[in-house]
Design a protein around this nucleic acid. Structure first.
Length: 109
DNA sequence: GTTTTGACGGCGG
DNA sequence: TCCGCCGCCAAAA
């Protein structure tokens, strides 16, 4: 794990399996900053969409694509998710719980 | 320096 | 169930 929070966020994001998604809060919790979910979002804001970080797999706890405006076009995030087999309706992931990937549970450290 | 602003989430009414 | 307030904390203004 890198020394700074931002890099840790990026590392975890890259570990999200294709076709799965997680939340800002789950990542924050995994990094020991449970109450700083906003910082995770802020960190993702700093990441370049072209850097290869699958930021589209990170949504808020309701499974809503709140960060879609940070992608090239408004439907870019949704398109990427659907491309991985995740259905999105009204900016919300269908069967969110089913696709949810909890780093705390899968990585456990 | 201080103030505002979020890609959030928990809790109370 | 739905809605709104509040704590969180780093960056930008």
């Amino acid at each position: 794990m890198g020394p700074d929070f931002f890099n840790n966020v990026y590392e975890v994001a890259c570990l999200i399996p294709k076709g799965r998604v997680t939340t800002y809060g789950a990542i924050a919790s995994y990094l020991g900053m449970k109450r700083s979910a906003r910082m995770v979002g802020y960190a993702m804001n700093g990441c370049d969409i072209r850097s290869g970080i699958p930021a589209h797999r990170v949504v808020n706890r309701n499974g809503m694509l709140t960060g879609k405006h940070h992608f090239g076009s408004h439907d870019e995030m949704q398109r990427r998710l659907e491309k991985e087999g995740i259905q999105v309706k009204n900016d919300k992931i269908v069967n969110f719980e089913k696709h949810f990937w909890d780093p705390m549970l899968e990585l456990k450290l």
